[in-house]
Design a protein around this nucleic acid. Structure first.
Lengths: 196, 196
DNA sequence: ATTGAAATCGGCCTAGC
DNA sequence: GCTAGGCCGATTTCAAT
């Protein structure tokens, strides 16, 4: 498994700026042929670096309500659970889970009833505190920097290096630091499958 | 200018989920022809609702450093300025500007030197306070809800209704509540142009 | 219906064993 | 020398207008 090189990053940058740019166009920029670009993009998808293709919608033109930033103090053991519940709310756009047990979400509430919104997903009684702030503006500026691949082995949690391998099981993508971790994982996976 | 209807919203939702879905496919879902879908998407771009097409990159697979959530207390008169400066930093992904004069940014810092990062963009001495928190997870779940168009007249700041009109000047898109606001604006614009 | 882009295929070249 | 992986050019298929 190769790491990302400058060409990959350049392709990513071009795609982030405009995912409809023809491959031939990208190819010129990175000095490759169109099929080569196609191959690399496929690979980026396979790796899970590119999750998919979307449209950038200007939320500020769509009145769905009032944009707010909500911070919830959550017992550290339950942050993931609370964050997941909030994430699935229609009104919630961004979910941040901090290491110190806070969950910060950016949402758009229709009638200003924030607690009503939160109440659908979490038990407010069990939170340490809730802070709601009105948003004046929210912006998203995707960046890449000098990004390199940083994968964790699904079997042993080590860092995956160039020797690593990947596989897709049941639509989910898994990365491994070596072939034996992969086979171990696959065997365990199959045992669980047949057991269920 | 027509408001968004259910078909537009449905198309948007389908595009958000997968912008590479063929128009014929979308057409089936919304019970239209492919060219009709094409027309609507063009219109959504013209309106500025669709800002563009991008790729969804899984930042968690790209190690550019440590993800943090930073909150800056800023004098209310300077929040926009500070937010804008931070937004343009390569490491900054999300910028939130709250109504009560705080700026919250989500960034990825390479060597853990957050203050060094901030120092590039803002005068730390002039801030009320800075709070930095390590992020465990950040997620983005785009939603649309029952969104309707909510445009503000560039001339008189009134809400733009179905009678409104739009125009593009120097690549920037402007919306107006009525024809006279549009002409007024255009005249003023031209005067400024020739003056400069 | 026309235009043009993207996926595919076979062959070539290079690096690593 | 052999293998694997990456790239290219031509072709075919399919989407956009």
């Amino acid at each position: 498994m190769r790491d990302l090189d400058d060409t990959d990053r350049q392709i990513l940058r071009l795609l982030v700026a405009d995912a409809r740019r023809p491959y031939s166009d990208i190819a010129e920029h990175v000095d490759l042929s169109a099929p080569a670009v196609s191959d690399r993009i496929d690979r980026l998808r396979e790796l899970g670096v590119v999750r998919g293709f979307t449209v950038d919608v200007d939320q500020s033109l769509l009145t769905s309500g009032v944009p707010v930033l909500v911070e919830l103090g959550v017992p550290v053991t339950r942050t993931s659970e609370v964050a997941a519940a909030l994430r699935d709310l229609e009104a919630v756009e961004h979910t941040f889970e901090t290491a110190d047990g806070a969950v910060v979400v950016q949402a758009t509430v229709r009638d200003g009833d924030v607690t009503g919104l939160l109440d659908e997903a979490v038990d407010l009684e069990r939170l340490r505190d809730v802070e709601v702030r009105l948003l004046r503006k929210a912006e998203w500026t995707p960046s890449l920097g000098e990004a390199t691949l940083s994968l964790t082995c699904a079997e042993c949690s080590n860092t995956v290096t160039s020797e690593g391998e990947s596989t897709r099981l049941e639509g989910e993508l898994y990365h491994f630091c070596c072939g034996s971790c992969l086979t171990n994982f696959e065997e365990r996976f199959e045992r669980l499958q047949s057991g269920a």
